[in-house]
Structures are given as structure tokens and as C-alpha cells.
């Protein structure tokens, strides 16, 4: 841990907030992507089954 001196609170909170925001964005994008992929796979499956029957 480097010596941050009297500005420790500022520096750490800047890093904390920014990384949280970015992590939130990444997480949101990944989860939305996964969910959409699953929904699409399910829908395509059903369509294929419907055709087969």
C-alpha cells in the first residue's frame, strides 16, 4: 500500500466509485447478454420442436 498522505480519502474514494461503476456496467452487460442468449436458445428450440411435430 503506497503512502497516500492527507489525500488518502479522496484517492481511495475516486478509485472505489469509478471501479464500482465500471464493474456494474460490465456485470450488467454480461448478465443481460447471458439472459438474452438463454431466451433466444429456448425460443429457437421451441420453434424447431413446433416444426417437427
Amino acid at each position: 500500500m503506497p503512502e497516500l498522505g492527507k489525500y488518502a480519502a479522496e484517492v481511495l474514494s475516486a478509485y472505489g466509485i469509478s471501479l464500482t461503476l465500471l464493474a456494474g456496467l460490465v456485470l450488467w452487460s454480461v448478465i443481460a447478454g447471458r439472459r438474452m442468449r438463454a431466451r433466444l436458445a429456448k425460443a429457437e428450440d421451441e420453434l424447431a420442436k413446433g416444426r417437427g411435430a
Binding site: 452487460s29 443481460a32 447478454g33 438474452m36 442468449r37 431466451r39 433466444l40 425460443a43 429457437e44
Partner: peptide, 15 residues
């Protein structure tokens, strides 16, 4: 990643 999600969403609509 997000573009892929959007394309899948379009495709889902079509399906």
C-alpha cells in the same frame, strides 16, 4: 458484447 445482445434480441423478436 452489447451489440451481440441486441442482435440476439432482434432475432428473438423474429423467432
Amino acid at each position: 458484447l452489447r451489440t451481440r445482445t441486441e442482435i440476439r434480441a432482434r432475432r428473438l423478436k423474429a423467432v
